[in-house]
């Protein structure tokens, strides 16, 4: 399992006083979500993790190597990223070229590039659109295309900023499957998200950011069981919990299925 280690990290924006400060933190679980309000520092942390901005203090180690010692190409192999808005990155004439372009930054074997690009397009379900102009695709498809550009490179760690945003329902299911496959094949997936239902249902580890710091790390059930903390950092619990709370039930349910399972047991016990 690839590993990210942060120690003594401090980053202050030059133009304003906002500061991200993380004393000691490791990211070593296969499926990690980073949550928090807007302006909590999530995107800044993401930029730090991929070396787009350099901290004033502290180090970020990826698999034992400091991020600023990694060569650009080695970094791309270690850690791949997609951003919220797919239109921030698409510029090639065809879908196929868009996927191949990213890979050609680190790979020179044309045959290999083509094979990897085709595989990635099949994985996200865009194989039949390979010859189209990326901007003729729907928003949901453009988002899938940005995932394909990273999948083709196959880095050890995947970083996604709001991956589910602007995806339609079939694409969401497709992406969730891809996440699980990545985890199964030994990759690490870290996502920034506002979607608490999704976090509760799929993730093993959650980090909560507030005011530039990581204020909580643990499992979704530990997080949503602590309703004081959830409120304090400005999060909403999963929808099923909003309902059960309103009904006076203060247990932790991560998904509607959880609730049903629990209550079937209750029903069985009664018999």
């Amino acid at each position: 399992m690839p590993q990210i280690e942060i120690s003594g990290l401090r980053y202050t924006y030059p133009e304003h006083s906002f500061q991200v400060e993380i004393d000691r933190q490791s990211f070593d679980s296969p499926l990690t979500a980073i949550v928090g309000q807007n302006g909590a520092g999530k995107s800044t942390l993401l930029k730090l993790l991929i070396g787009l901005i350099t901290p004033q203090e502290g180090t970020i180690m990826i698999n034992g190597v400091s991020i600023d010692e990694l060569k650009p190409q080695a970094k791309l192999k270690q850690i791949g990223v997609t951003f919220q808005d797919p239109d921030d990155q698409l510029f090639n004439a065809t879908v196929q070229k868009e996927v191949a372009w990213g890979l050609s930054q680190i790979e020179s074997d044309q045959l290999m590039i083509k094979r990897a690009a085709d595989q990635a397009l099949v994985a996200v379900g865009l194989a039949d659109k390979a010859a189209e102009n990326p901007y003729d695709l729907s928003l949901s498809e453009r988002k899938l295309l940005t995932f394909a550009t990273v999948l083709a490179i196959n880095p050890a760690i995947y970083l996604f900023d709001e991956p589910m945003m602007s995806l339609d329902w079939p694409s969401r299911k497709r992406m969730t499957n891809i996440f699980h496959q990545l985890v199964k094949s030994g990759h690490q997936v870290i996502t920034i998200t506002h979607d608490m239902d999704w976090v509760a249902a799929e993730f093993s580890t959650v980090h909560v950011m507030a005011h530039g710091q990581i204020t909580f790390s643990g499992t979704p059930s530990a997080l949503f069981g602590n309703s004081g903390l959830v409120k304090r950092v400005g999060l909403l619990p999963p929808r099923i919990m909003t309902i059960t709370r309103a009904l006076g039930d203060h247990s932790v349910y991560l998904t509607p299925e959880d609730y049903c399972r629990e209550h079937k047991q209750v029903a069985n016990n009664l018999n």
């Binding site: 930029k47 991929i50 787009l52 650009p72 190409q73 791309l76 990223v81 951003f83 808005d85 921030d88 990155q89 372009w101 990213g102 930054q105 680190i106 550009t149």
Partner: peptide, 16 residues
Amino acid sequence: ANMKKIQMAQRARGIN
């Protein structure tokens, strides 16, 4: 503002 975001995204993809 858009340009800053785009430059960021492309730098993350390996443009130097």
